[in-house]
């Protein structure tokens, strides 16, 4: 564990709490992409299957269970409790392509051609693009509630910090995780426009609006 990874994990955790806070406080999931949330639930379930096979640490186990449980709870909130506030007209990104592309990549790039490893690769590739429906929704509405932008920032920041963590681990442990590296760079790059607007507008007290 190094400082980058710890802060990254805490940001990831914070992003989920911010999202839950936004939904509960505003009693609405307006501005949140159900499709992105669905993709994250798929990411967590397919990646953390090793909960049943490998013990790493209490920290690791608790975080994994939390990520799976919270992602499914958010789907429940959006699909049932606050269904009336969700606008599917704005959430029209075709996730079939993201899912299909991730399956193909996972079948080609994996550490072993067994279900567990293929699903792990699939989750890594899918996570890198899972934010696209959310960013697409943002571009359609052209603006967002401030709390929603904090959520997206924390979620994007987490993987950017993982890049620092991987660099650290490469330098000090010789640890290399090539697929996660590539996916992490893509994932962070997808956020770059968002980060720029977040920095120039939201952090200066202005509303998030696309130029």
């Amino acid at each position: 564990m190094n400082i980058f990874r710890l802060v990254a994990d805490l940001m990831h955790l914070a992003s989920i709490f911010i999202l839950l806070l936004k939904i509960q406080k505003t009693r609405s999931c307006a501005g949140i992409s159900f499709k992105t949330q669905l993709l994250y639930a798929i990411v967590f379930v397919t990646r953390y299957l090793d909960l049943f096979t490998t013990w790493i640490s209490l920290y690791n186990t608790i975080m994994k269970i939390f990520f799976i449980a919270s992602s499914i709870y958010i789907l429940y909130l959006m699909k049932y409790k606050f269904r009336a506030t969700y606008d599917p007209i704005l959430d029209t990104f075709r996730i079939e392509f993201l899912l299909g592309g991730s399956v193909i990549l996972a079948l080609i790039f994996n550490y072993d051609f067994i279900p567990m490893e293929i699903l792990w690769s699939f989750s890594i590739f899918l996570e890198s693009v899972a934010i696209l429906p959310q960013l697409f929704m943002l571009s359609r509405t052209g603006e967002a509630e401030t709390i929603t932008t904090h959520y997206i920032f924390a979620l994007g920041g987490y993987r950017a910090l993982y890049l620092c963590n991987w660099l650290w681990r490469y330098i000090f442990d010789g640890h290399v995780e090539v697929y996660a590296w590539i996916a992490g760079v893509i994932q962070t790059a997808l956020y770059s426009d968002f980060f720029y607007i977040y920095y120039t507008k939201v952090l200066h007290g202005k509303k998030f609006e696309l130029p």
């Binding site: 990874r5 994990d9 990831h12 090793d50 490998t54 790493i56 640490s57 690791n60 975080m63 994994k64 990520f67 550490y111 072993d112 792990w120 993982y162 963590n165 995780e177 996660a180």
Partner: peptide, 10 residues
């Protein structure tokens, strides 16, 4: 190489 691959991250 394959077997040494350890997934200890989230």
């Amino acid at each position: 190489e394959k077997k040494e691959h350890k997934k200890d991250e989230l």
